[in-house]
């Protein structure tokens, strides 16, 4: 009997370890609400999660990029400016690792938004991308109205940071990499200056890429 209990304990311990380390799902951040619909005469309650709203920016090639370009894609968003002397080089170094891991994945994108659009024009962003060694359409450097960039950063992308931290404001300047799933829901935020967190991000992207494609509803 004792042996049996001991054995069960080991199995339980193993199972709990496994569910902690090899987590197969990531949390969904942002606000949520329950919506009740009538399906086939029965009322069904569904949870509707906060998603990244419509946006339109211009990338380093001068192409217009909107939320539609990210339909069905897993992507990482961050906020930077090309002349930033402090944390940005460290962020770029780490984002290059993410880029190297997924640059050939058709369902993956990186969106780096400049928060200094006055200086970071399209040609400046192109030159920056070239010097970083980034080509192709996996990693876009986006430019738009400053207030649009700040608004989407604070209200949409950085919800995970707001939720997890008691610190007030200034998130945009803190170098977060925000992970967004195929349904445009925020699934994680990682310190882009910390190599360990970026390794976790690289692992979590794989998890999200394995999630089923969203239904092609509105």
């Amino acid at each position: 009997m004792r042996k049996l209990v001991f054995g069960l304990l080991i199995i339980a311990a193993y199972a709990s370890c496994k569910s902690n380390n090899g987590k197969s799902t990531l949390p969904i951040y942002g606000s949520r609400k329950a919506v009740t619909k009538i399906v086939d005469g029965k009322s069904v309650t569904d949870t509707v999660y906060q998603t990244i709203p419509q946006f339109r920016f211009v990338n380093q090639y001068g192409d217009s990029i909107s939320n539609k370009n990210l339909d069905g894609k897993v992507y990482v968003a961050d906020f930077f400016f090309t002349t930033c002397p402090s944390i940005c080089p460290q962020m770029a170094r780490n984002m290059l690792k993410v880029f190297a891991a997924y640059k050939n994945s058709a369902d993956f994108r990186i969106l780096s938004h400049t928060i200094d659009p006055k200086h970071d024009s399209v040609p400046v962003l192109k030159k920056y991308a070239d010097k970083l060694g980034v080509n192709g359409n996996t990693w876009w450097f986006l430019q738009g109205k400053k207030e649009d960039t700040y608004s989407i950063a604070e209200n949409s992308y950085l919800v995970a940071v707001k939720q997890d931290s008691s610190a007030a404001g200034g998130y945009v300047h803190q170098g977060y990499f925000v992970l967004v799933d195929k349904q445009k829901r925020v699934r994680g935020a990682y310190d882009g200056t910390e190599a360990k967190q970026v390794d976790q991000l690289i692992a979590d992207i794989k998890t999200l890429l394995a999630e089923p494609d969203p239904k092609t509803t509105p």
Partner: peptide, 15 residues
């Protein structure tokens, strides 16, 4: 270190 890296490897063609 922020710019030149902990291994002094710099950053692509930028640093």
């Amino acid at each position: 270190q922020n710019c030149h890296g902990n291994d002094g490897a710099g950053l692509s063609a930028l640093i």
